[in-house]
């Protein structure tokens, strides 16, 4: 009868290190999971899955579509990619405030107006795309000037 193939053990140093790490993680994890263990586990694992299987494929696909859409002007992709990425980054980080989903609590707790975030994000986005457009036009003009004149 053939022997079942056993998994090799691997580096003993690595095993020791990971053993220590798991012991500490378990010590803290037991305390983390006391309140609502299912909810916490869902958030812990869900955050990783949501990032790796939803957020990342989503922005990668958007970027791929952008590159495809640029056709032979691939060198111009950056003029859209950079402002779009920066704007979406701001939206991702400040989504609760920009979307207004915490507007009521925010206004009553801090005494600050809750409705300026969307406006400011839109203005920042406009500035990012506008700045990129200005840069694009300037570079295009410089490139046109530097090109040798065509004969009439």
């Amino acid at each position: 009868m053939p022997q079942p193939r056993l998994l090799p053990v691997g580096s003993p140093l690595q095993l020791l290190l990971l053993g220590c790490s798991f012991a500490l993680a378990a010590y803290a994890g037991l305390r983390l999971f006391t309140e609502d263990w299912f909810g916490v586990a869902l958030w812990f694992v869900g955050a990783a899955l949501l990032h790796d299987l939803v957020l990342l494929p989503l922005y990668a696909t958007l970027d791929r579509a952008l590159v495809r859409g640029a056709g032979r002007h691939r060198d111009r992709v950056a003029y859209v990619r950079v402002p779009a990425a920066l704007s979406l980054l701001l939206l991702l980080v400040w989504f609760p405030l920009i979307s207004g989903r915490v507007a009521g609590r925010y206004a009553s707790a801090t005494g600050l107006p809750p409705d300026g975030f969307l406006t400011r994000w839109l203005l920042l986005t406009a500035a990012l795309f506008g700045g990129s457009a200005v840069l694009f036009v300037l570079r295009l003009r410089r490139a046109t000037k530097e090109r040798p004149p065509t004969a009439h």
């Binding site: 053990v9 691997g10 580096s11 690595q14 798991f22 812990f44 694992v45 955050a47 790796d52």
Partner: peptide
């Protein structure tokens, strides 16, 4: 290997 398997579990704790 066993060490590699444990490292991947550890990466879930790291990323999560």
């Amino acid at each position: 290997s066993l060490a590699h398997a444990l490292e991947r579990v550890s990466l879930l704790l790291l990323v999560g």
